[in-house]
């Protein structure tokens, strides 16, 4: 994948845990245009190891001079967000992938209902710029834990006016999914981004209330799970790669210099799919791409988030 060389031109503290970063091309040219809901993957060199995290682009989609992303510091994570918070300063040089969109609005929808939890607000920032420009009807529901964690609230009030609704957990103002889903006009589409539990329960509720699957869009921030180390053997290139416990299979392959495909790095798009030829243990699927039947049949794996409890796995690569 061809990467873009960028430099950080601004870092802004948004809330105690959230920082916003602005990137421009290192040589000052124009960045590729993107559509609302797009993300880029940022490559970080952490002590000689390349770490890659996906972040949504937040800026207005009309701006191709700079990209902005927001990163929430996850203390328990494997270091990507901590690195962004602690090491990345104005002037830092980074590599990013060109934008890809796995969370685009459906332009045929009659109404768009956007639901964000916490840092899950980020993809909606650029979607809103699209929706405002196109004049499409929408409403945004944004839940966060407490008033001091209300990232981008002022900006949203300005951008969305009375279309935005805030829900503050510790003030007891909770989102009621049934209310969001009931009596919405035909042709509505709903988009949800936030913590796993929130996304899962909204998707389930929509199904139970008769919403068709293709009107329900979701994005989760799945961090690759850690686990036991194992060896991946690549049948086509006749190489063996050791996957350490704290690294994903995809990361281990990349580290070994193998150009493995990926897009979302979150188990959602299916791009990284590998065929499992053999495995002397059990596959542990964490993705949301494969169907349950495919997971059981155990001959495919999404190495960006999934791994195995085994000593050796053979894949067709």
């Amino acid at each position: 994948m061809s990467l873009l060389n960028v430099k950080v031109t601004a870092v802004e503290q948004i809330t105690e845990q959230v920082k916003q970063f602005t990137f421009e091309l290192e040589d000052g040219g124009k960045l590729p245009y993107f559509s609302g809901g797009s993300h880029v993957v940022v490559a970080m060199d952490i002590d000689g190891r390349i770490h890659r995290n996906a972040y949504s682009l937040m800026g207005p989609t009309s701006d191709n001079e700079r990209y902005t992303i927001a990163v929430r510091k996850q203390e328990q994570s494997r270091g990507g967000s901590v690195f962004m918070h602690e090491q990345v300063k104005p002037g830092t040089r980074l590599q990013i992938t060109p934008p890809t969109n796995l969370f685009a609005i459906n332009k045929l929808a009659k109404k768009h209902i956007l639901v964000a939890g916490g840092i899950g607000i980020t993809p909606f920032m650029s979607q809103i710029s699209d929706l405002n420009r196109l004049g499409y009807p929408y409403e945004l529901h944004y839940a966060y834990r407490s008033a001091d964690q209300a990232a981008f609230r002022d900006q949203l009030e300005k951008l969305c006016g009375d279309k935005v609704h805030f829900y503050v957990d510790d003030e007891g103002r909770r989102m009621n999914f049934t209310e969001l889903l009931i009596q919405q006009p035909l042709g509505s589409h709903i988009y949800v981004c936030g913590p796993n539990t929130m996304v899962n329960s909204l998707v389930l509720m929509a199904k139970q209330m008769g919403w068709p699957d293709n009107a329900v869009h979701s994005e989760k921030f799945l961090a690759p799970a850690t686990g036991e180390p194992f060896v991946v053997s690549l049948s086509l290139s006749e190489t063996e790669v050791m996957v350490p416990g704290e690294m994903s299979m995809l990361e281990a392959l990349e580290e070994a210099g193998i150009d493995a495909p990926y897009l979302c790095r979150g188990g959602a798009c299916g791009r990284c799919e590998l065929e499992v030829v053999d495995c002397d243990g059990e596959l542990i699927h964490h993705d949301v791409y494969l169907s349950d039947a495919e997971k059981i049949s155990a001959n495919k794996i999404m190495p960006c988030v999934s791994r195995a409890n085994c000593s050796r796995m053979v894949v067709n690569l």
């Binding site: 889903l181 009931i182 009596q183 919405q184 006009p185 035909l186 509505s188 209330m209 008769g210 919403w211 009107a215």
Partner: peptide, 10 residues
């Protein structure tokens, strides 16, 4: 009839 239909109508 469609005037009184919402999402969740099959």
């Amino acid at each position: 009839t469609l005037d009184s239909c919402y999402m969740g109508t099959q």
